[in-house]
């Protein structure tokens, strides 16, 4: 029994190792320092007697390839003039085949935009708590002190943080850039750093040049969101008098105007006193929404306060007016 258990756990370990290895081979390739060996065998017959001979064994060591990919994770950030600590989110991935440290730099004095964001001090942070934005737990980056050391295929999330100058006008765009460079070295693909790879192997610059940079963008936004509410009453007798039992249908038209994006816009309305929500009466742009908190964007809750909410998502002027309807009856 003891033996069977240990055999089973040994298989588990082998399986995990194999998965890890095959994952790695997908992107970064064979790990630097791996010896590739080859031996040929010849079989032949000498006057009817079978013979077999092996060749010498040739061993070729895989050199370290230096590659990095920087990607912007955040869309254009809508800001107001004078805003402080506005962050752009980046991901830095080691696409080489050996562990490598990277030097990070940022710049906000770029051409092709309307204003220069002002780097905060410090301006580069690791998203230590994986929150996707700047928070107290995030560690500032100090060049040469905590350069991110990444295993092949591993990534780190990096924030660059800028203040927005005052006196800008709506629609102004400002660029800010994060750059990463392999500590071993950068250069044209194929550039050789002899003996500087893993375990004394050579390091060779890969197709990315072992560096990368990406711009993120701030947009000064004056977006405003308006909601216009109207109502129609129909009483039980075919008229429009607000009597007990009459049904009130509310229509709310939400529209965004100006430049920029109203992120994660939500409409919330409390059911008036002395009325009762009509189940399954919520509509968005003519499409019925269910009352439950589920995959669609509409929700009705009875407690603690009866209210209707509709998640409208990111609204821009181009989104056009969003028409919400729901109904109540008078108690």
């Amino acid at each position: 029994m003891q033996n069977r258990w240990s055999a089973a756990s040994a298989w588990g370990v082998v399986l995990l190792l194999m998965l890890g290895a095959s994952d790695r081979s997908l992107a970064a390739g064979v790990p630097a320092g791996t010896d590739i060996q080859n031996t040929a065998v010849v079989n032949y017959s000498l006057r009817g007697t079978a013979q077999s001979t092996s060749s010498n064994t040739v061993s070729v060591t895989v050199a370290e390839i230096l590659d990095v990919v920087v990607t912007l994770q955040s869309p254009t950030v809508s800001v107001s003039p004078g805003d402080t600590q506005q962050e752009l989110v980046y991901r830095l991935t080691n696409t080489g085949n050996g562990p490598e440290a990277f030097l990070l730099t940022m710049t906000s004095t770029l051409s092709g935009d309307d204003f220069d964001p002002l780097p905060s001090v410090p301006a580069i942070y690791f998203d230590t708590d994986n929150s996707g934005d700047l928070s107290a737990a995030d560690t500032p980056y100090v060049a040469g002190s905590n350069d991110p050391l990444l295993q092949p295929d591993a990534f780190v999330t990096v924030l660059i943080v800028n203040d927005i100058p005052a006196g800008l006008t709506s629609g102004n765009r400002g660029l800010s850039q994060l750059a990463a460079a392999a500590r071993t070295g950068t250069g044209a693909p194929g550039t050789l750093y002899a003996g500087q790879g893993v375990g004394g192997t050579d390091a060779v610059v890969g197709t990315t040049g072992a560096d990368g940079s990406v711009n993120g963008e701030y947009l000064v936004s004056d977006i405003s969101v308006t909601a216009v509410k109207s109502q129609t009453v129909s009483d039980p007798f075919g008229g429009t008098r607000p009597v007990p039992g009459a049904r009130i249908t509310y229509q709310i038209v939400v529209a965004a105007a100006g430049t920029g994006t109203a992120a994660a816009a939500a409409f919330v309305d409390t059911i008036p006193a002395s009325t009762t929500f009509v189940p399954a009466s919520i509509q968005l742009n003519g499409t019925a929404l269910t009352d439950a908190a589920d995959v669609d964007v509409g929700t009705y809750v009875a407690t603690p306060t009866p209210q209707v909410s509709v998640q409208l998502g990111d609204l821009t002027q181009a989104s056009g007016p969003q028409t919400i309807r729901f109904a109540v009856t008078i108690n």
Binding site: N38, A40, V42, Q51, T53, S54, S55, N56, T57
Partner: peptide, 16 residues
């Protein structure tokens, strides 16, 4: 043991 060709009538050599 590391791969010197063994004695025989055919000598086999691998090159990378």
């Amino acid at each position: 043991a590391a791969g010197q060709p063994a004695a025989g009538c055919i000598v086999l050599k691998t090159v990378a």
